[in-house]
Design a binder for these strands. Structure first.
Length: 723
DNA sequence: TCGAATTCCGTTTTT
DNA sequence: CGGAATTCGA
């Protein structure tokens, strides 16, 4: 079978493009991934050595699948297919002198980085009400993505907040270096710096590949843009593919200009547009296209399909999230009776917490499902605990790991002892473990503490001397550290599940050993650090897939549910203040809709439990942007709602009075209520305030609604009016 | 120092 | 509501 079979002329044009830069602007469902894999196969057929081809994908899962497809097409596996992050880690490890700590560095994930930042804040005695460690982390992350060094950031810091962040950035970076650790952003940061400023490094890597292909180019940030550009500098055979309408990572530093200005960067670039959609029915595509047309910051283009109209997109308003989940379950069963399998079905949501209700209802009903993301496997407490020991074996200077391992399970090393140890380490510029080595002479410690430290010291020594495969080491650590014994005797209600997870960790190490014969514990840990949520997900099982819209990027399902379409949730509060924020949310919705092949259900709830409180919500503005002729409105029970063509409401079932889907207003936070006030609520009607407590955005009002009951509402969300 | 009890606080989205 | 941080008694 030829690589070009069943391809459209535009696809063939992209696949067979010769040398020189090329931009493939590919709409949703236009066969973009297939074009890239086919192009790789084509290049190999044309005699390009496979090891001279580099393909960069967005996730490791996509990388694996792409490699597999190339193998099927031309029986070749020596192509380098990887994500930016994995690739950068490999580049740094292959260049021993590239960074100060050489090639033996540990990769900190977001949680490790956060605890490091917390430690820095503590050390600097910064304790602000207003700035969370996470917000400081985000600012530092953005700075790194923009390639701002500590010095540059310091010189640009204007206000008090920025100057504070600058201090943290400096200390954080120093700690990372001392710990021989890199966070996610550092991987890109260092490689981008080296590619632009270090001649030997650049020369080596820009000659390494003859062809560079980058997928999801619309989601690259500045550092990634530079890395890609320099990697392809020698031959200029760069092929970028993406879709500006699917740019959904602006908050992470992704710069949509990278794709919009590709033609400026490469004036001789060939541009191929793939505008035929092969994935969705006409009705689904119509909904997607009409909604995205509301974005102003956009290149005008229209996708088309030659496929059938298909079923209308079904829109359902439920009273609350519980009913919404039940409605989804009911429609799922309906879909099954018309021939779909569980595995054909996906449920999307904007934020992770929404998965809980859906999960609960599906579980109650006994429907099989899999959640992609949420508390990912490697983020579980017990896993991170054991990983801390493993990381310490690979990199004894990893203080974040040392801090975690030293008293888990508890072995008599409390905060006092730990503080003394840290003082010692800081005074002599030691790592925590180095300070531990001389802990016998540590001043101000009691005999008990010294003994406890000695126990831990010999434990680490014992574990370090153990040799074996990654799986054997993991197993050894779980047992020797006393962790499993501690877990078994603990009162943790999830202890059995946790023990199973630890078993699963050994299994995954064993799988790594099998897959990577020349692997090491370090290799395993690196893989663990860089796996994404979606990488873990394997389709094929006959189960319903639950995931965030972000995680759904690049996937497709015959049946799709997009849930929680409410103002404040989708679009999300934090994005609603700016027009560009709303536009990114709209692109996100566009991504969600275009995942569907045959059947699309969109749902929203009139109220939702948030922070343990019922918070009312209006239908999302995006719902009003959908074309009426492609929509069918349904009750939560699946009955069609006959309504006038121009309707203002989506969610009226119980009450006759319509809730006007007007855009959420801002409510003055100071305008509080008192007991006895008579108020009106858009859903619950008239009521009397029983109690009002809290301040600012956390103000809580308890209201008794005659005939409805007593409700606890958050003033920030509740649209309460004084009567 | 430990662990149970209590309070606090959060939610975008993720490599 | 549910996990993390903090407090407090032993």
């Amino acid at each position: 079978m030829s690589i070009l079979d069943n391809c459209t002329p535009a696809q063939v044009e992209a696949i067979t493009h010769g040398d020189g830069p090329m931009l493939v602007v590919a709409g949703a469902g236009s066969g973009k991934t297939r074009v890239i894999t086919s192009r790789i196969a084509y290049l190999i057929q044309q005699g390009v050595p496979p090891w001279k081809i580099l393909a960069i994908t967005f996730t490791n899962k996509a990388a694996g699948e792409m490699k597999e497809r190339v193998r099927t097409l031309v029986g070749e596996a020596r192509v380098w297919v990887s994500t930016f992050h994995s690739m950068c880690a490999r580049m740094l490890r292959q260049s021993p002198d590239a960074i100060d700590c050489g090639k033996d560095f540990t990769i900190y994930d977001a949680a490790d980085s956060l605890s490091c930042i917390k430690a820095c804040l503590k050390e600097l005695d910064i304790d602000s009400e207003h700035w969370t460690p996470a917000s400081i982390q985000a600012v530092i992350s953005n700075a790194k993505n923009e390639l701002q060094t500590v010095e540059q950031f310091e010189s640009r810091a204007g206000n008090f907040f920025e100057r504070t962040v600058a201090k943290v950035y400096r200390l954080y970076q120093a700690r990372l270096q001392q710990n021989h650790s890199l966070d996610f952003d550092d991987l890109l940061f260092y490689v981008a710096k080296l590619m632009t400023e270090d001649t030997p490094f650049r020369e080596h890597w820009s000659r390494r590949f003859d062809y560079v292909l980058i997928d999801e180019y619309q989601d690259t940030n500045h550092a990634q843009y530079l890395i890609a550009r320099e990697l392809a500098a020698e031959t200029r055979n760069i092929c970028a593919t993406g879709d500006p309408d699917q740019s959904i990572y602006g908050w992470r530093g992704a710069d949509i200009r990278n794709i919009l200005e590709f033609e400026k960067e490469y004036s001789d670039a060939k541009v191929v547009k793939l505008e035929e959609n092969f994935r969705s029915t006409a009705n689904i595509l119509k909904v997607a296209e009409q909604v995205i047309a509301n974005n102003t910051e956009r290149i005008d283009r229209a996708l088309y399909t030659r496929g059938e109209a298909g079923a209308k997109v079904r829109l359902t308003g439920a009273d609350d999230e519980e009913q919404e989940a039940e409605a989804i379950y009911a429609r799922i069963q309906q879909m099954r009776s018309s021939g779909y399998r569980y595995g054909d079905i996906a449920v999307f949501y904007r934020t992770n917490f929404q998965s809980r209700v859906i999960e609960r209802v599906l579980g109650l009903e006994g429907a099989p499902y899999v959640i992609v993301g949420t508390v990912e496997f490697y983020n579980r407490k017990e896993i991170k605990d054991i990983l801390a020991y493993l990381r310490l074996l690979v990199n004894p200077r990893d203080d974040v790991a040392a801090f975690r391992a030293i008293n888990t399970p508890p072995r008599g090393i409390g905060s006092q002892t730990l503080a003394a140890l840290q003082d010692e380490a800081r005074r002599y510029n030691f790592s925590l473990l180095e300070a531990l080595e001389r802990s016998n002479e540590l001043p101000g410690l009691g005999a008990r503490a010294i003994k406890a430290l000695g126990t831990f010291r010999s434990l680490i020594g014992e574990i370090a001397s153990f040799e074996g495969t990654a799986a054997e080491i993991v197993d050894h650590v779980i047992k020797k550290s006393g962790y499993i014994q501690w877990l078994r005797t603990s009162k943790d209600e999830n202890r059995e599940e946790r023990e199973e997870n630890l078993g699963e960790l050994v299994t995954s190490a064993a799988r790594y050993d099998e897959r990577t014969p020349d692997g090491s514990l370090q290799g395993f840990l690196e893989e663990v650090a860089l796996v994404s949520q979606i990488d873990e997900y394997r389709d094929g099982d006959d189960r319903i897939t639950l995931m965030t819209v972000h995680a759904a990027k690049g996937l497709e399902f015959p049946v799709v549910f997009v849930s929680g379409m409410e103002e404040g949730l989708f679009p999300h509060h934090n994005s609603m203040e700016s027009e560009s924020g709303v536009q990114e949310e709209r692109r996100l919705f566009y991504v969600a809709v275009t995942r569907a092949k045959k059947e699309l259900f969109i749902t929203h709830a009139g109220s939702r439990m948030r922070f343990g409180m019922i918070t009312p919500a209006l239908p999302s503005r995006f719902l009003r942007e959908m074309p009426a002729e492609a929509i069918e409105k349904q009750t939560p029970y699946g009955e069609e709602i006959e309504e006038p063509a121009v309707s203002k409401t989506y969610a009226v079932r119980r009450r006759e009075k319509a809730v006007a889907p007007e855009i959420a207003r801002d409510y003055p936070e100071t305008d509080t209520f008192r007991a006895g006030d008579v108020v009106r609520h858009p859903t619950f009607g008239r009521g009397e305030v029983v109690e009002c407590s809290g301040a600012g955005s956390r103000t809580t009002v308890i209201v008794r609604f005659p005939g409805v009951g007593v409700k606890r509402l958050m003033l920030h969300y509740a649209k309460l009016e004084k009567v």
